[in-house]
Amino acid sequence: MQIRHSTNPKDAKHYDTNRLRDEYLIDSLMRADEICLVYSQIDRVITGGAMPVNSELTLAAGDALRASSFLQRRELGIINVGGSGQVKVGDKEYSLSKLECLYLGRGEPDPTFSSDDSAQPALFYMVSTPAHKEYPSVKSTQADANAIHLGSLETSNKRTIFQYIHEKGVPSCQLVMGLTILDTGSVWNTFPAHTHDRRMEVYFYFNLGEQDRVMHLMGEPDETRHIVVKNHQAVLSPSWSIHSGAGTRNYGFIWAMAGENQAFDDMDAIDLNNFR
């Protein structure tokens, strides 16, 4: 498990491209027959990916958590962005097709991951946060999610937000998680952008071709920077940073938040005149 430390916005404005990428970009999450994990000290979020091809993979605590099991003090959200697969948790087994979500509550046994077809392996993207109590483990499909339609083709940001783990959906301690799909012809996400000082966020991009890229915008509104992002890469966003992007084509991204509250609309919109 890789460890990332928190950063100060006064320091971040002096970072060059390589330093920005080292601090905030998670560039390799899906590797065959591996579980890749990044522990960020920004709200203690763990971002990970599991790609079972030829063998079953188990998510264990490892040395970093000093716990008897991964979910001893944590909760976990999982969204599959690949072929169909299985998540086993003790004597329970959950089948996840593409873009289906699974929430695992505190105290559950270490989950294992497998694919139905090694030629089209499942790609399990996951985000974990500390948890103070147990909530039931629940599977959620796109049909179960709360769908919100936003934007327009005229502004190149027509998109649908699918809320899975949130205040009025799958309950959790602090994790909020869902995904956004941009319509064909739209390339902008979350712009005009915002910040939410009480929560951090992680963006994971998917549905991008080999030659496609997203210019992910971050930083304080008057000190913006960008990170060039490929398919299946993620960006950590501290609470002081905007999080937005424009791609070479339409795409999808999974968003996950952790922090002080779970209010989806607790955000501070930024006036376009204040962007620099």
Results as ranks from 00 to 15, higher is better:
His5Ala: 13
Lys158Asn: 10
Gly83Pro: 07
Arg249Tyr: 10
Ala145Met: 14
Asn207Thr: 04
Thr195Phe: 06
Ile26Phe: 05
His14Asn: 15
Met1Lys: 06
Asn54Ser: 13
Pro121Met: 00
Ile35Trp: 00
Val202Thr: 13
Arg225Thr: 06
Gly105Thr: 01
Asp27Gln: 07
Leu123Phe: 07
Phe204Val: 03
Glu100Asn: 08
Asp22Gln: 13
Val187Ala: 11
Asp144Tyr: 05
Gln41Cys: 11
Glu260Lys: 15
Asp43His: 12
Ala122Ile: 02
Ile46Glu: 01
Glu201Val: 05
Ala119Met: 10
Ser69Arg: 13
Gln163His: 14
Thr190Tyr: 08
Asp110Gly: 03
Ala246Glu: 08
Lys133Pro: 00
Ile227Pro: 00
Ala193Pro: 13
Glu260Leu: 14
Phe124Ala: 01
Tyr164Gly: 01
Glu220Cys: 11
Ala263Asp: 13
Arg198Pro: 03
Gly48Val: 06
Tyr103Pro: 02
Asp27Arg: 10
Ile148Trp: 04
Ser95Tyr: 06
Trp240Ile: 07
Leu208Gly: 01
Leu123Trp: 05
Asn189Ala: 09
Tyr251Lys: 10
Gly178Lys: 07
Gly90His: 07
Thr47Arg: 03
Ile148Met: 10
Tyr205Ser: 01
Phe275Pro: 02
Asp27Lys: 12
Ile78Pro: 01
Ile242Glu: 03
Tyr205Asp: 03
Ala131Tyr: 02
Ala64Ile: 15
Val214Glu: 02
Glu201Phe: 04
Ala256Val: 09
Ser152Met: 06
Gln86Tyr: 13
Ser114Phe: 00
Tyr24Phe: 15
Leu104Val: 05
Ser241Gly: 09
Lys88Ser: 13
Tyr203Ser: 00
Pro52Val: 05
Gly82Leu: 08
Asn274Val: 08
Phe162Asp: 00
Pro109Lys: 00
Ser156Glu: 12
Gln233Gly: 03
Val176Asn: 09
Phe275Thr: 10
Asp144Glu: 10
Lys10Leu: 14
Thr129Phe: 02
His243Trp: 09
Ala263Asn: 14
Ile42Lys: 05
Ser68His: 10
Lys230Ala: 10
Arg31Ile: 15
Phe204Ile: 04
Cys101Pro: 01
Asn261Glu: 14
Glu134Tyr: 08
Thr160Arg: 07
Gln120Trp: 06
His5Trp: 09
Thr224His: 05
Ile181Phe: 12
Asn146Pro: 00
Ile78Arg: 02
Arg225Lys: 15
Lys133Glu: 12
Gly245Thr: 11
Leu96Trp: 03
Gly83Thr: 08
Asp222Gly: 06
Met51His: 05
Ala193Leu: 09
Glu210Trp: 05
Glu100Ser: 07
Ser118Gly: 03
Ser241Ala: 15
Gly178Ser: 11
Ala67Cys: 11
Leu59Val: 02
Ser152Val: 10
Arg44Gln: 14
His132Leu: 11
Leu182Met: 13
Leu102Glu: 01
Glu154Leu: 12
Leu175Lys: 08
Gln86Glu: 14
Asp43Glu: 13
Ser84Met: 11
Pro52Trp: 01
Gly247Gln: 10
Leu102Trp: 01
His232Ala: 14
Thr17Phe: 04
Gly178His: 12
Ser55Asn: 07
Gln262Met: 14
Arg225Gln: 15
Met126His: 02
Ala258Met: 08
His194Lys: 12
Arg44Ala: 12
Gly49Asn: 04
Cys173Glu: 12
